[in-house]
Simulated assay, not measured.
Amino acid sequence: MAAATTERYRKEQSIPLRSSSAALYNNLSVLRLPGGRLAALSAVHGPSLSLLSAAADGLGFSHRQLQAKEGGMAVSTSLLTQAAWCVLPARVLLVLTSQRGIQMYESDGSIMVYWHALDVAEHSPGTSSGLVLVFDIPPKGTNVTVSEVLEQHRDAITDIAAELGQAPVHVESAPDGAGDLVSADDAGTLCIWSTGEEFTLLSKIPAFGCSCSSVKLWNGIVAAGYGNGQIRLYEAATGLLRAEVNAHARWIYALDVAPQTGKLLSGAEDSFVHVWKLSRNPDTGEVAIEHCHAECVTDTQVCGARFCDPEGNSFAVTGYDLSEIFRYGRA
């Protein structure tokens, strides 16, 4: 771990939610448009999603509750377990997972594009049996199909992350052969994949007795947050451990990365949010992590934390049973 540097963030006006945030891993999603403009935020509570869309003038948000329907025109609902925007080359989809299935909506939540039924026992992104489902998404329309089912995990999937590919040209590119997708499970096992016409497993990082709640990829580095409060950094090309930090006193619930700078955001049950800086030495390939900022969200079990811009100059935080989203910006 490198010596700490200091960056100052200040608390800004919070955004009210119509319902509180559930105690789910990574329970905050942020949609950023090209140019860094913040478009929307969302948080899950029970069977509904609080969806906040940024106003055109950037000065406010419009609120709506998305009650996830099951099976197209069905009206029954079940508990949501995750929500995230999937930014594809030709379109953006809002993807929800629930106890009964996977639902894909247009980015504003207005139209359901696709619904994939799961067995009633399935509860998590990916599935609780450890399967990772790969979908083919057309540039428009509803002809979504399952193209692959990845079967390397034996425990419930907790998080999946892809290399965002938005690093500026002055950042060294990821090492040759680095995977561009990582999946994590409740036992703590990580699988690093190379995507393409078919998914190829590059390495499998074994569990060590602690759940992995959140993973991120940046510049060929896998950042993983665990239930023991540790952040571990691995090579996405080989799976080798490069660094580990005792980052939090309690269970980590969320990680996020700013793709243009390598800043890493972590939030945990200990009421703290930390900002870190990841780096790779272009000559030696050595990976380093340094601490930049600590923020105490008093009496709050942090369950979601996301940067609001690709440089990491602002971030947002949700907490269990908290009916607002806290926002912070560079001082």
Rank of each mutant, 00 (worst) to 15 (best):
G126N: 04
Y105E: 06
T142E: 10
L93Q: 03
S314V: 05
A207P: 04
T145V: 10
A54C: 08
G188D: 04
G165W: 06
E70Y: 00
I289F: 00
M1G: 14
L33K: 08
L59F: 06
S29M: 09
K204D: 01
V87A: 06
T298M: 15
S128T: 10
E7V: 13
H274N: 15
I15F: 04
G209R: 00
Q13G: 06
L241P: 10
V222I: 15
R306H: 10
G165D: 10
L28K: 05
A161F: 00
L133K: 11
S76N: 15
K204L: 02
A4P: 07
R64L: 14
L96K: 02
T145D: 04
A207Q: 10
I15Y: 03
A162F: 15
M73Q: 09
P310Y: 02
D57R: 02
A2V: 05
R100T: 06
E106S: 11
C191E: 05
G141D: 12
R306N: 13
S213H: 04
A83N: 02
A178N: 10
P310Q: 02
S98E: 03
M104K: 06
L52V: 05
E198S: 14
S183W: 01
L41M: 12
F315R: 07
I289K: 00
C303N: 13
I160D: 02
F272Y: 14
E197I: 12
A258E: 12
V317C: 10
Q260R: 12
V169L: 08
V215L: 02
G109M: 00
L52S: 05
I252F: 07
V287G: 04
A236Q: 12
A178Q: 11
A236E: 15
E151Q: 15
D57N: 07
H170G: 00
L17W: 11
A187H: 04
I102Y: 01
V275M: 07
M104D: 08
S173L: 08
D256F: 05
D283L: 15
S19K: 07
A243V: 07
Q301P: 04
D180T: 08
P139Y: 07
L79E: 12
T5L: 09
G267Q: 03
I252M: 07
P47A: 10
T261F: 05
S214T: 15
R154N: 13
K11D: 00
F326D: 14
P310N: 02
E163T: 01
A2D: 11
E324L: 03
A3M: 09
S107E: 14
